[in-house]
Every structure is written in structure tokens, then in C-alpha cells.
């Protein structure tokens, strides 16, 4: 109650101040050491008045946008310190940790090769639409990730090197690129999540794969089309990706929200989820390229070597070879000679 009365009184005062600056200057002579003159109701003195503005007090305005009555949005300070403090610091640590883990994994485990080399017989793994949507999302993810990282860490890493004015151009470029490509990613991500969902649903045996050591095991524990590691990547992409998309759309179209605080929250969710996803994507990209010999074939040619399938996704390979045996013939005709099936 006291609060409402205060707000009302403060509002009246604010309006008076805004509309009648001239009059106010006229009566200023009556003030003594900052006190409001005469019988005026409201703040007792100037410092109280300014403190209230500083703390985010809302005055009255005659335009439709009532939030314009807030001169200083003081929660913004909290958001700013979270963004420049823990978010950037721990985000940076997380990325460094992910990179470090990949290096250690590589040093300990090396490139996981196909035991005994390729057989030359191929098993179909990803259809054309599956491959296309994967690479479309991946391309946008890389562009958005790079521009996003620039926006998040550039002022600490790049600005000291190139100076404020050049950095301002780089930041503007990153932001514009990021804003433009963002909505395309949202649409593509939704399609991708739909296309890949079926085989990423939990299956009996997933835990066995993990308990037998997962990626760390040298014995290649069997798994379905995707092992638990890949399924975790999918579901992380699902939840973090949707959080990034929703918050990103709000940031791209700020008129969808009513209060700027909602945008600040959206920004924290967006940047936080993105950093987690980028850190995880480094592991995914490593395993998809250098980490596991033969994995990339599936995403480029659509076929994987039979031996790769048996070693990495034993249960799936059994089924795939039973049901799609006819497609295996001639699969390698489209592969380069070194990957093509033996005659």
C-alpha cells in the first residue's frame, strides 16, 4: 500500500518535472539545501528524488509506452554484471575445458581406426534428406557460433589487440550477421530435430554401452544406430537448441516482449545455452572427423564401411544388413576409389 502511494506520488512529481521544467526553474529559488519548496507532496529532497530514479522508479508519461516512464532500468546493472562476470568467465572455462578434454582424449585414445582396415563393402546409413539437413544446420551453427563467440568474448580477446574503433566494426558485423542468420537456424533446427528424433529415443542396451566404457572402451561395445553419447548430443541439441532458438527470436524481435528485463533474461538463457552447446559441438565435430575413422563417410556419401558399422553400431549393423541388403550392392560405385568396395 505504502509502495503504491509512493509510486503514485512519485509519478505525479515526475510528470510535473517533465512537463514543467521551465516553471521548476522559476521556483528553484525557493528551495533550501535541496528541500522541495512549500507544501509540495512527494520526495523530500533532490537526493531522494534522484535515488529513486537510479533505483528504477517509474514515473508517469503521456505516451502509450508506459515503460518509458522508467528513466534508469536498474536491473540492467545486474544483467550486465552477470553477462560480463560469471557468464563470460565460466563460459570461457567451459570451452577451454572441452578443448582440453578433446586433446587429452586424442593423446590417450588416438584416432579410433577401423580394425583391420575397410572391407570395401558399404552399409547405407544416412539418406540424402538426412545429410542435407545435417549440413545445413551445421553450416549455420558454425557461422552463428563464431559470430556469437566474437560478441561474447571479442571485447576481452580481440579489442585489446585491434583497438576500440576496429573492434566496434567487427562487433557490428558479427551482430548483423548473427541476427540475419538466426531465424534460418531456428527453422532448420526444428526440421533436423524431427528428422533425427526416431533413432535417438532411449533403447534398451544404451546404458550397457555406457557401462562398458562407451567411447573410452577399447573393446567397441555394441550399440543401436546411435550410442548413448550421440543420443545425449541429440537431446542436448534438442533442449539447448530450442532454448537458444526461442530466446534468440525474442532478441531478434524485441517487440514481442513487454519489458526489457525479459530480454535480459532471454539474453542470459541464449548465451548460456549457446556456450554449453558450442562446447559440446567441439566434441561432436572431433569425433565426426579426426576422432573416428570412417564416421564422416556416412554424412557425406550416405554409406559407411561394413566393418565400421559392425564395430561402432553392432546391433544396428545387424538389422541394417538384414533389411537393406539389396542397397549395399553398388554402394561404393559412387565412392572415391580408395573407399570403394573391393571387386
Amino acid at each position: 500500500m505504502k509502495r503504491i502511494v509512493f509510486h503514485r506520488l512519485f509519478g505525479v512529481l515526475c510528470l510535473t518535472i517533465m512537463l514543467g521544467m521551465g516553471v521548476m526553474s522559476g521556483v528553484a529559488y525557493a528551495q533550501q539545501s535541496g528541500a522541495v519548496p512549500g507544501n509540495t507532496t512527494g520526495s523530500v529532497n533532490d537526493s531522494e528524488f534522484w535515488r529513486s530514479i537510479r533505483q528504477g522508479g517509474q514515473g508517469l508519461v503521456s505516451i502509450p509506452n508506459k515503460t518509458a516512464g522508467i528513466m534508469i532500468q536498474s536491473e540492467g546493472e545486474e544483467w550486465r554484471s552477470l553477462r560480463n562476470g560469471p557468464l563470460s568467465t565460466y563460459g570461457g572455462y567451459l570451452l577451454a575445458l572441452s578443448l582440453g578434454a578433446i586433446v587429452v582424449f586424442f593423446l590417450v585414445r588416438g584416432r579410433i581406426k577401423i580394425t583391420g582396415g575397410r572391407t570395401g563393402r558399404a552399409v547405407p546409413r544416412f539418406s540424402q534428406p538426412e545429410r542435407w539437413i545435417h549440413w545445413f544446420v551445421a553450416s549455420l551453427f558454425i557461422l552463428l557460433g563464431l559470430s556469437g563467440l566474437l560478441l561474447m568474448f571479442g571485447r576481452y580477446v580481440i579489442q585489446p589487440i585491434i583497438g576500440k574503433s576496429a573492434w566496434s566494426a567487427v562487433a557490428s558485423a558479427s551482430l548483423q550477421g548473427h541476427n540475419l542468420l538466426g531465424p534460418m537456424f531456428v527453422v532448420a533446427l526444428l526440421i533436423m530435430l524431427g528428422v533425427y528424433m526416431k533413432d535417438n529415443i532411449w533403447q534398451k542396451g544404451d546404458l550397457t554401452w555406457a557401462l562398458k566404457g562407451g567411447f573410452l572402451s577399447k573393446g567397441h561395445p555394441p550399440s543401436w544406430k546411435y550410442n548413448l553419447g550421440e543420443k545425449s548430443w541429440y537431446w542436448l541439441l534438442f533442449f539447448a537448441g530450442l532454448a537458444i532458438s526461442t530466446s534468440g527470436l525474442l532478441l531478434d524481435f524485441p517487440w514481442l516482449v513487454e519489458r526489457v528485463q525479459q530480454l535480459q533474461l532471454a539474453h542470459l538463457v541464449h548465451a548460456g545455452a549457446a556456450v554449453v552447446l558450442i562446447a559440446a559441438s567441439l566434441g561432436h565435430i572431433y569425433l565426426g572427423t579426426i576422432g573416428v575413422e570412417g564416421a564422416l563417410d556416412g554424412m557425406t556419401y550416405g554409406y559407411v564401411d561394413e566393418k565400421w558399422a559392425e564395430e561402432h553400431h553392432g546391433w544396428w549393423a545387424e538389422e541394417a544388413m538384414k533389411t537393406r541388403g539389396d542397397v549395399i550392392e553398388g554402394a561404393g560405385e559412387t565412392m572415391p576409389p580408395e573407399k570403394a568396395p573391393a571387386e
Binding site: W132, S139, Y301
Partner: peptide
């Protein structure tokens, strides 16, 4: 902006085809 997004989508899709269609790769 919308036109740019349409153009980008088309171009990226066309390039992706080059790296993930066995015939187009060759």
C-alpha cells in the same frame, strides 16, 4: 532481410549438395 535469408538458404543448400551427394562430390 527476408530476401537475403532466402538467398542464403538457397546458396547454402546448393553448396551442401556438392559436399554430400556422392555424384556431386565427384
Amino acid at each position: 532481410i527476408l530476401t537475403a535469408e532466402i538467398a542464403f538458404t538457397g546458396l547454402i543448400l546448393l553448396w551442401i549438395r556438392r559436399i554430400s551427394d556422392p555424384v556431386m562430390i565427384q
